[in-house]
C-alpha cells in the first residue's frame, strides 16, 4: 500500500469522530520505482494532508520530507523527487494501520490492509 492510499483512508468505526490519519506500524516496507509525473504531483500537492504524509513517511523510515511547505516549493526538482518517492514509491508491505481514536489495529498483509469492520463496529 502506497502512502497516497494511506492519505485518503480513515477509520470508519462506529462512534469514531477523528479517524484520520491512521497510524502506521511498519514491519516491512518495500520500494518500487515508478516514473515521476510532475503535473500529477502538483495536483496532488493541493489534495494531500501534508502532515499526515510526513508522519507516515517517517513511520516507514523515510525522513526526507520537509515539515513546513508552501506551493513555491513545487519549483524545486529535488522536492518533487522526494514527494514522488514518499507518495508513490514506498509501500507498506507488512504491518498495521491503527485507528488514532480507538487504537484498533487493521493488519496489513502482503501489502493489503484489512479494513473489514466487526459487526459491532459498523
Amino acid at each position: 500500500m502506497r502512502l497516497l492510499t494511506h492519505n485518503m483512508l480513515s477509520s470508519n468505526i462506529k462512534g469514531v469522530v477523528n479517524g484520520f490519519p491512521l497510524r502506521i506500524e511498519a514491519e516491512k516496507v518495500v520500494e518500487k520505482t515508478v516514473e515521476m509525473n510532475s503535473e500529477f504531483l502538483k495536483k496532488m500537492f493541493d489534495k494531500v494532508d501534508w502532515k499526515a504524509l510526513v508522519d507516515a513517511s517517517r513511520a516507514m523510515g523515510y525522513t526526507e520530507l520537509p515539515e513546513e511547505v508552501d506551493s513555491s516549493i513545487l519549483d524545486s526538482d529535488e522536492f518533487l523527487n522526494r514527494f514522488h518517492h514518499a507518495l508513490l514509491e514506498l509501500h507498506l508491505e507488512e504491518g498495521a494501520l491503527v485507528c488514532p481514536e480507538t487504537g484498533r489495529r487493521f493488519p496489513v498483509n502482503k501489502g493489503i490492509p484489512n479494513m473489514l469492520l466487526h459487526e459491532d463496529e459498523v
Binding site: 492510499t5 485518503m8 470508519n12 490492509p113 484489512n114 473489514l116 469492520l117
Partner: peptide, 19 residues
C-alpha cells in the same frame, strides 16, 4: 502497481477528494 484494500465498499472511511 495497484493498491488493494480488503473492505466492504460501504464501510470504508475516506478523507479528502483524491479519487
Amino acid at each position: 502497481d495497484i493498491d488493494f484494500i480488503q473492505s466492504n465498499v460501504l464501510d470504508l472511511g475516506w478523507r479528502g477528494s483524491i479519487v
